[in-house]
Design a protein around this nucleic acid. Structure first.
Lengths: 327, 327
DNA sequence: CGACGGTTTGTAACCGGTTACACGAGCACC
DNA sequence: GGTGCTCGTGTAACCGGTTACAAACCGTCG
């Protein structure tokens, strides 16, 4: 059995209070006593129990993060940014993927019991579940999702990015475009679609192509649907993976790109750069990092009113949208 | 303040022991008493404190996982497989990325205090640090890394996969090949290189091209180095991302592929399929899932002797290694 | 009717820390 | 020499659960 604070106290001939004081450096302890305690702790290889400490301090020193999935670069990057800041702030990170989990809500509730606050990403649990968390006093930050109840939120400027992208396409004489994605599953995606709609003039035509998932496989499938009928001037995809999947399939089918059709993605994942994909960059890692900071403010109590951060997006034009549409 | 078990006991007019019994369903409680307790718990919206429970049970009901990074599909998939099984087993998952962290070892030690066992992936902390964990009684499973001390391990059959890939290339008359990667940073990569060396006949030529990192950017850089000198017959990359980066740059440079040079990757990430990349598939998610199961056996004490699992790899031939080398 | 055995329930001691409060020692000051 | 202060340390009560053990209760049987 591992040594406890009482063992150390006995070994050093002091009380457990003194041991605790030495180890947390809280109040003055006579140097000779301190040395005795440290020697005893060293001798017994004492490591304080995280559980005992947490219970006494009534804090977990841990944050949670809930995401739908980790396949694909987007969520992974957000989690990475989050973990990195949380670690700096001395907090551990608990993860929870709602992927294939029918009991997502109860899993999130259970997680909330194990941390001081948590971040909820995109389409994971319903708003009502988040509200319940907040009502119960949990500290919650939403990412890539409109704020719920009194929770904080961090979002990218999706509308703005969508407008910039749309204007760029309009400059290339694009008039018939297809949005590939499912606005019903992700609030972020819905925002992007809305931004495009707002920027489009009346004489332009926007179709919505639903997909089941936002991965490369789906992108490739979408192309299949268009090989037998008329291609639009441009495809705008809900994320880069869809777009990359389309690129592969289009080039395999021998479609001239960007001459015959243009393709744009969203996120600016690393692969987009190497594929020459036009996209809207959003600061994925910074989304996670900002969420971690907001959460820390909530937990430490340095702020009580909800905050809603908007991070910039940026149009990145590459070779998949070069040149005007042929008349 | 939230209700505690004592509040519920008072409200129901029973002792805390009875409340605890009702809530954990351990021993027989008279139905009428049970109902009173449940009603009281409901009334007070009682949710048992995870910390109190954990301290009393002396278990965290949480597992850790340590990885170098989360950019790129490989680690993300392993983590996903791990989380999914851990959740099934009723355990939370703590993550720790050693990326850009100078104090990785102490961070891992701290994490070990907060969970019942942990998984250490690839190149993260030195062997000595893992040994210290094991000596201190921590349950440790290594993934993509040779076992250390008494720890369990889960690995893919790297040598076997490398041999299959090499034989495939030899069949195509490849004689001069370049391995792109850094065997010194990752034991997995070193194994792959060794497998190739073992399978190569004496008249073949294998060069090693070091890279700083295993991402697409590095892959693109590598190509730059070869555009001014002779290309080998084939590049074998330590992972798919390197290979994908090379593909993009090679095709931009107008190099005939697979005619002039062949390229192979490793992992079989989703993008590899759409890029037509020949690669060696390893079951990334299953690596994580297996680690979670082994860890559970260690923690539950159902097994005490170390186990070392080897998961299959599989050569996946696609268009980047089609046709024989031109004489 | 009392002994006996099984079922329910309560008491209290944990788990391993933190910390409010009290107490004693040492010192300066009047 | 007594008073009052500061400094260092110990006592004990927490934090919020689980659980060994004992006790109380109830029905049955001799």
């Amino acid at each position: 059995m591992r040594a406890t604070i009482r063992d150390v106290a006995r070994e050093a001939g002091v009380s457990i209070a003194t041991v605790s004081r030495v180890l947390r450096d809280s109040t003055a302890v006579r140097p000779t006593t301190r040395d005795r305690v440290l020697a005893a702790a060293d001798e017994l290889e004492f490591v304080p129990s995280a559980l005992g400490r947490q219970l006494a301090e009534r804090r977990h020193a841990a944050n949670g993060i809930v995401f739908p999935d980790l396949s694909g670069p987007y969520y992974a990057e957000v989690v990475l940014g989050y973990e990195s800041v949380a670690a700096e702030l001395g907090r551990s990170v608990l993860i929870l993927s709602t992927r294939d989990r029918p009991d997502a809500e109860s899993a999130v509730q259970a997680m909330a019991e194990r941390c001081d606050g948590l971040v909820v990403l995109g389409r994971t649990v319903p708003d009502a579940a988040v509200e319940r968390l907040v009502v119960r006093g949990a500290h919650v930050v939403m990412v890539a999702r409109p704020p719920v109840g009194g929770a904080d939120s961090v979002n990218a400027r999706n509308r703005q990015g969508a407008r910039a992208l749309t204007e760029h396409l309009l400059d290339l004489d694009v008039r018939r475009l297809v949005f590939v994605g499912d606005p019903s599953t992700s609030p972020d995606v819905a925002e992007r679609l809305r931004g495009i709609q707002e920027a489009l003039p009346a004489d332009a035509d926007l179709q919505l192509h639903h997909v089941d998932s936002l991965d490369e496989e789906c992108g490739a499938h979408v192309v299949g649907d268009y090989l037998t009928r008329a291609l639009p001037d441009a495809f705008v995809c809900a994320n880069d993976e869809l777009a990359l999947g389309m690129l592969g399939r289009l080039s395999a089918a021998g479609v001239d790109l960007p001459g015959r059709v243009k393709v744009a993605g969203w996120d600016d994942v690393m692969a987009a750069r190497y594929a020459g994909l036009t996209t809207v960059r959003q600061p994925m890692r910074e989304l996670g990092a900002t969420a971690a900071r907001l959460l820390d403010e909530l937990i430490s109590g340095s702020r009580s009113h909800p905050t809603h951060e908007l991070l910039p997006t940026q149009l990145v034009v590459r070779s998949t949208t070069l040149g005007k549409v042929a008349p």
